[in-house]
Measured scan of single mutants.
Amino acid sequence: MGFKLLSKLLVYLTASIMAIASPLAFSVDSSGEYPTVSEIPVGEVRLYQIADGVWSHIATQSFDGAVYPSNGLIVRDGDELLLIDTAWGAKNTAALLAEIEKQIGLPVTRAVSTHFHDDRVGGVDVLRAAGVATYASPSTRRLAEVEGNEIPTHSLEGLSSSGDAVRFGPVELFYPGAAHSTDNLIVYVPSASVLYGGCAIYELSRTSAGNVADADLAEWPTSIERIQQHYPEAQFVIPGHGLPGGLDLLKHTTNVVKAHTNRSVVE
């Protein structure tokens, strides 16, 4: 069995187990497998329904001669939608809004960016022009300005110390501490036991640490421990890039980060 097929099978099995364990909360999309990078042309966006009122959005972007996937989250909030992270750029984010209108038909009224990198804030200006209120932590807003990236308009308070959590509509926002970046936030959907790890969490097929220019490698494993301790009931975990899975993604990420750190020390 090929690795790609095995990865998709694991996603399907995880979703099936969740649907059985929580039949009222989960209505997993039966329309197909989780979209992969090879299936999404740059400039297009796919939506994948995880649970009743919960979707991931998947886009792709060219970077350094390669094409990478990027995940975000959409959560229903009454007759409105909360968006977590842009679709990595203005063109993708405009396509995301169009796809949401086509498939869901509810307005996106608020959006949260989970850290300051372009795959999370690139497209904020498109959201703002569409009347979406954009939010991020003060740290993310400051770092985005320093980096020359787009800056969300509103500040999220109460997320300055490791372990801080605040309720934001249908989700809980959690600051686990520094990891992929010093400002990275985690998003949890309690009604569906869905954990969105953003770039602080890796997919299972990833074996290298990737972009760690703004990471705190020493603190990252401790931050992941905080996530595990705060959300032990999480059933569906979405990484910032690639295929979702279960809580095993947290341990896998820790292993990859520690291996990278150990290699760096040896070198």
Rank of each mutant, 00 (worst) to 15 (best):
M1E: 04
G2W: 09
K4I: 13
K4Q: 07
L6Q: 10
Y12F: 10
Y12M: 14
I17E: 09
I17Q: 07
A21H: 12
A21K: 15
A21F: 14
P23V: 11
P23H: 15
A25N: 14
S27E: 10
V28N: 12
V28T: 12
G32P: 09
G32H: 11
Y34C: 06
I40F: 09
G43S: 07
R46D: 06
Y48D: 07
I50D: 01
I50S: 03
H57G: 02
T60A: 12
Q61N: 07
S62G: 14
F63D: 14
D64F: 11
G65L: 07
A66G: 12
A66T: 13
V67I: 09
Y68K: 06
N71R: 02
L73Q: 01
L73T: 01
I74T: 07
V75K: 02
V75G: 01
R76N: 05
G78D: 14
G78Y: 08
D79A: 10
L81K: 01
L83W: 04
I84P: 00
I84F: 13
D85R: 00
T86S: 04
T86V: 02
A87W: 01
W88L: 00
G89M: 00
G89R: 02
K91H: 11
T93N: 00
T93K: 01
A94M: 15
L97H: 04
L97T: 04
L97I: 07
I100D: 02
E101G: 12
K102S: 13
G105K: 13
G105C: 06
P107C: 05
V108F: 02
V108M: 04
V108Q: 00
R110L: 08
R110C: 06
V112W: 04
T114A: 04
H115A: 00
G122C: 07
G123K: 05
G123C: 05
L127G: 01
A129Y: 15
G131S: 08
V132M: 05
T134L: 01
T134C: 03
Y135G: 01
P138I: 09
R141L: 09
R141F: 02
L143S: 05
L143C: 04
A144C: 14
E145L: 14
V146K: 14
V146P: 06
G148Y: 03
G148K: 09
I151K: 06
S155T: 14
L156F: 06
L159R: 03
D164H: 09
D164E: 10
V166M: 13
V166D: 04
R167I: 12
E172N: 02
E172L: 03
G177P: 01
A178D: 05
H180E: 01
S181I: 00
D183P: 01
I186P: 01
Y188V: 03
V189P: 00
P190H: 07
S191G: 12
S191H: 15
A192P: 06
V194Y: 05
L195V: 05
Y196G: 00
C199L: 02
I201A: 03
Y202Q: 11
L204K: 14
L204R: 13
A209E: 07
G210R: 06
G210K: 06
A213I: 12
A213K: 12
A213R: 11
D214N: 09
L217C: 01
E219L: 07
P221D: 06
T222R: 12
E225Q: 13
R226L: 09
R226T: 05
Q228E: 12
H230D: 06
P232M: 08
A234E: 02
F236A: 10
P239Q: 03
G240T: 00
H241E: 00
H241W: 00
G242E: 05
L243N: 15
L243A: 15
P244D: 02
P244E: 02
H252F: 01
V256T: 06
V257A: 04
K258T: 13
A259C: 05
H260A: 14
T261P: 14
